[in-house]
Computed example of a mutant assay.
Amino acid sequence: MASNQMVRMNQGQGETSYARNSSIQNAQQNRMKPLIEAAIVDFCSSINTGSLFPRKMLIADLGCSSGPNALALVSIALEAIHNHCLQFQQTPPEVCLLLNDLPENDFNTVVKNLVTLRQSNKPLVMIGVAPGSFYERLFTSGSLHLVCSSSSLQWLSKAPEHLTRNQIPAYDIDEHTRRERLPIVLEAYAQQFRKDFTLFLKLRAKELVSGGRMVLSLIGRPSYIIDSEFFHLWEIVAQILSVMASEVRSFFFFLAQHFIIC
């Protein structure tokens, strides 16, 4: 998730599409399964009065993207509700699933994948899409029972203003300059994340029902990893991209010479 001007994930089902190249994200979603199941059980138990299940539940995935991953989290929640109702012999609630991402997301692919979910014998009533940034209000007040988000909240609403205002790149190809500016860059992004995450929590607090639950995962690193070790990977990537760019320039220079001679 990022600002509305950011590029989207590759659309479709082709070899280079996000749908065919998102196994790491899928693994992260699978690790969230016990957390989502526990959130469902905990929520239903906390509001359970007179051994009655809630009559309706609204579940949202924020930053769903496209492809099979778009339905992974809500499918886990739906299965958890189904199993909980069977265990306690309760009437299943009416469930509404809402999938959110930026407007340029490939929702066409998402909608096609919804057919399979519709055919399942789960307590599903309605599925909808909610295009827009999750750094803005998306849903009505007091409407959400469960909010899920996986590998999305590390995307900021915008680049840190301090860096853009002073034209400081997030990653400078010059090693000396990069290391000199590293503390400034890290602090700028940390401040932007704190600002965005605080806003995210305030917005969801308005949209969640009393006692509603959120299960969130985002990419990070253990604090004991030294910054220099963490950034070594990006140095390798930068070198590879630099070589690729050089080869592309050489290729086009060759083409230009060829066409001039012809």
Score class of each variant (00 low, 15 high):
C64H: 10
I219Q: 09
T177R: 07
V41E: 15
R204T: 08
C85N: 10
L35I: 00
G50W: 12
A60T: 11
V147E: 02
Q29L: 13
V215R: 05
V111C: 09
N48F: 01
G142A: 09
M9T: 01
T91L: 03
R178K: 11
S46F: 03
L58V: 14
L241E: 13
I47K: 15
L186I: 15
D61N: 11
S45Y: 03
F231H: 00
S133Q: 08
F53N: 09
A188T: 03
F193L: 09
S149F: 04
F200M: 04
F231N: 00
K195C: 05
P222H: 07
V243G: 00
F259C: 05
R178F: 11
D227N: 09
F43N: 03
P160R: 04
Q257Y: 00
S151C: 02
D172E: 11
D172R: 03
N83K: 15
P93G: 09
K202E: 13
I184K: 07
N48K: 13
C96G: 13
E37M: 06
L97Y: 02
I47Y: 00
V7Y: 06
E37H: 10
S242M: 11
M57N: 09
M214H: 04
F259Y: 10
I127C: 13
A188E: 02
P92A: 02
H84A: 12
S22V: 06
I76Y: 09
K122Q: 14
I219L: 15
N113M: 13
L144D: 01
Q11D: 09
L233I: 10
E37T: 13
Q191A: 12
S149N: 09
P123M: 02
I59Y: 01
S149V: 06
R8P: 01
S152W: 00
I236E: 02
F253H: 14
H84M: 12
N48D: 03
F193S: 05
V115M: 10
V74P: 04
V215T: 05
L98M: 13
R194W: 00
A70H: 07
L199R: 15
P123D: 07
R55M: 02
I81R: 05
A27K: 15
R181Y: 02
N108C: 04
N166R: 05
R118Q: 12
V125G: 06
I24K: 14
F251C: 09
T198L: 06
L146V: 06
R31N: 10
E207Q: 02
R165D: 09
L203Q: 11
L163V: 08
F252I: 12
Y171D: 00
L233Y: 09
E180K: 15
N10K: 11
G67N: 04
G67L: 01
Q5H: 06
F139L: 15
A2E: 05
T49Q: 14
L86S: 10
L144I: 15
F259H: 14
S46G: 11
Q29Y: 01
